[in-house]
Design a protein around this nucleic acid. Structure first.
Lengths: 167, 167
DNA sequence: TTAAAGTTTCAATATTTATTGAAACTTATT
DNA sequence: AATAAGTTTCAATAAATATTGAAACTTTAA
């Protein structure tokens, strides 16, 4: 496969993977592009390479900065902003996990905590509901704790986790 | 909060959570509904409770059966099909993890394996690309292995994983 | 203080994804 | 073999999401 072809296919695939794991397609593609670029890129260059509009580039670059996985860079003497991706994949995955826990799991937990304390009544249906929501609350809460423990192992967390799970 | 209100809010929240974690909103809602129902439900009952069309109910129930987290049940003397959800949350999460690995991670890995062996050339850009795609391949591959190890601990895998990570 | 370079915003539009509903199909019953 | 009960399919439609592009805004420098 030619370099250009490989690169395009990679950007496509990483975009699809990203959109399945919580960041949108364009965001994932921009991130992928920055990750494989030897130098930081200007917005123009990102637009050109991915064939997207200025507005799209601007919004998604901001999104990436909000996720904390892309940084602005100013080149001396130049007015343009340049963008570069965090190069450490471990830290990338860690940030995404933390962010998703904060944005999705924690709010859902708050609701679960809330509904499981509804005004009880002795019907079969209500009892089953109580049981299941309590169970689900425990489960989601533990899953979130597990996620936290996994990503809090600094440096090579995946390898470390695999090791610990070997036993 | 009244039972009815709590129930509706729960169905909403579980639907939203589901759609962020890989199964679509209606599917997650149907599953949630079946999970909290003391008895198995007919398609009619699901349609009624969630206010969705017959086609929608039919397709998403099939989807749930494909995921292996909902089962058909036939009541003696009755012609209708009834549906019930797998009651074990651990096994539910395990099945989703396995299925997503199969549907999303493994195919992406195949592409990564492919592109990282592109026709090399000595340019800066190509070298960086080679390095990063190899790194990403390693990472995704390890992450998938980790996921596999976590979900393969039968019974209370989350608790077990937390335990092992304590050290 | 004006113009130029660059960035952001957001209403309009396009794309993608989910849902409906009615016809076609399947299976059981008389 | 005709009818009724139930289910599935899928083209049409609706809803949700993403993208564009041009105007408004910001910053730098002459």
């Amino acid at each position: 496969m030619e370099f250009k072809e490989a690169k395009d296919q990679f950007l496509q695939t990483w975009g699809a993977l990203g959109s399945q794991w919580g960041i949108n397609k364009t965001m994932a593609q921009i991130h992928a592009l920055l990750m494989i670029s030897p130098d930081s890129l200007s917005m123009e260059e990102v637009m050109e390479e991915l064939q997207i509009s200025r507005g799209n580039a601007s919004m998604n670059l901001r999104g990436l900065i909000d996720w904390g996985i892309v940084y602005k860079e100013y080149k001396p003497g130049e007015r343009k902003e340049y963008f570069k991706a965090d190069q450490d994949i471990d830290s990338l995955a860690r940030k995404i996990a933390i962010e998703r826990s904060k944005r999705e799991i924690k709010p859902a937990l708050r609701v679960l905590a809330d509904v499981k304390n509804f005004d009880d009544n002795p019907s079969n249906e209500a009892q089953k509901f109580k049981m299941k929501t309590e169970e689900l609350y425990e489960f989601v809460s533990k899953a979130d704790t597990m996620l936290g423990k996994i990503v809090n192992q600094k440096e090579n967390w995946i390898t470390k986790t695999i090791m610990k799970l070997m036993s």
